[in-house]
Amino acid sequence: MTKRAPYAADPQAHGGREFRAPGADAGGAVRAATKGETRGPRTDFQRDRDRIIHSMSFRRLKSKTQVFIAPDGDHYRTRLTHSLEVAQIGRVLARALGLDEDLTEALCLAHDLGHPPFGHAGEAALADAMGRYGSFGHNAQALRTVMRLESPYPAHDGLNLTWDVLEGLAKHNGPVTAPGWAVAQLDEAFPLGLGSWPSLEAQIAAVADDIAYDNHDIDDGLRAGFLTLEDLLEVDFLADQWRVVEKRFPHGARDRLLRELIRDQIGLMVNDVLSHTRASVKGYGSVAEIRAAGRQLAGFSPDMAAHERALKRFMYDRLYYHPEQVAAAARARDVVARLFAAYSQDAALLPAPWRADLPPDDPARARVIADFIAGMGDRFAIRTCEEIYGEMPQGLVNV
């Protein structure tokens, strides 16, 4: 078992919770059980992970786009399966580096909770609709989801996660120097130190996300027929690894070799992150020093980062901006725009619980409408648009 690193986040000394829970000390950490109390064996970071897994927003990820909008096949990835794959990679990295696996896993599982239907196409449509009301972004929406929208507890709004999880969600991609309205409002209620770098656990969650979608989106693109082996071989990094796989399995079936290629790439990226991060954190002795470092410490080496950027460019050119994908994204944006317009013009179209809490004026009113749409799955958004407008959005899916 890897020794716990001195710069690992400590579940016994975290930054507290926004709302003090029964049995918690002043900082929010759960005290040992006293007579008549049952606190259980979990750390606070394990509790956070479990709260995320049991949330409705996490379950709804099964119906949200990863690459393909409302795909017909069961084998394509969704935001839910992607989040599970990110968590698996994140746990491996955290364990090898001596970091807190539970905090890393919680961040990996929660990082996409704010994604609206239809992936980045839906996000772009909501950002356009919310442009005059403080805009919209899935990272900020993830924070809003766990702090205000998911409210299973009688004493407070939100899941009341630890500061460390909220900080990681807010700035896993680095310091937030110009927070939008949603993040600024939440930061005012529970300051998250937006100007510094986050914990290594949060940095690892971010790079695990890159590793997962860089490689697994290739798998889905091949399955859909949007990518071919010949396309992949145009990328030097992929071509080099393909030759290694062919040499190792000279008589293997092509589809199995392609899966082996993806596994090999994940392994190469993981090992590169471990090597580079270990070198970067030498001399650091606490999580506070990590946050004060002023730079990203966990990530790819310069050489691997260059390969990863080339891979991303290839994926945008050949998959994400494939003509069929672009056409589907345009139709998806239209669905989201029409839903926002309908609810803005006639609040009676909203479900009763949402109408009851709808503020009378913008921007708060628009924000609640965006919250409702952001929570939809792909197929639910399509069906709802059909119910409101009396016609099925063409070219997306037959539900």
Rank of each mutant, 00 (worst) to 15 (best):
A125N: 07
K247L: 09
V397P: 02
A306V: 06
V399F: 15
G28R: 10
A224Q: 08
A288W: 05
P71C: 13
K171W: 04
E391F: 11
W354C: 02
L166G: 03
P302F: 01
H115G: 05
A327S: 12
P6T: 10
A32M: 10
D100H: 03
F58K: 08
V86H: 07
R47V: 11
F249E: 13
S57G: 06
L238F: 14
R95S: 13
D334R: 09
A87Q: 10
V67D: 15
T38E: 04
A21P: 01
A310N: 12
L258Y: 05
K312C: 09
R318T: 13
G221P: 00
A178F: 05
Q141C: 02
R263W: 06
H307K: 15
Y76C: 00
P71A: 14
G195V: 07
V270S: 00
M130Q: 05
P179T: 09
L169S: 00
R4E: 08
L311K: 14
A205Q: 01
P250E: 06
D210F: 12
I52G: 07
L84Q: 12
G299T: 09
L186D: 09
V245H: 00
G390Y: 08
E18P: 03
A330Y: 02
L222K: 04
A366K: 03
M56L: 12
Y343D: 10
D220K: 06
I218Q: 02
V326L: 14
M1C: 00
R318E: 10
D272S: 11
R295F: 05
G395V: 07
L84F: 14
L80H: 13
Q12R: 15
P360I: 06
A70H: 11
L261Y: 02
Y316A: 09
Q12N: 15
A32L: 15
Q345T: 13
R383L: 15
A342V: 07
R291D: 05
A155E: 15
R331T: 08
F136K: 12
E37D: 12
K282S: 04
H54C: 04
T104M: 07
V67A: 08
L109G: 01
P117T: 10
F380C: 00
H115P: 10
L61M: 15
S55K: 10
P6V: 12
A329N: 14
T162N: 03
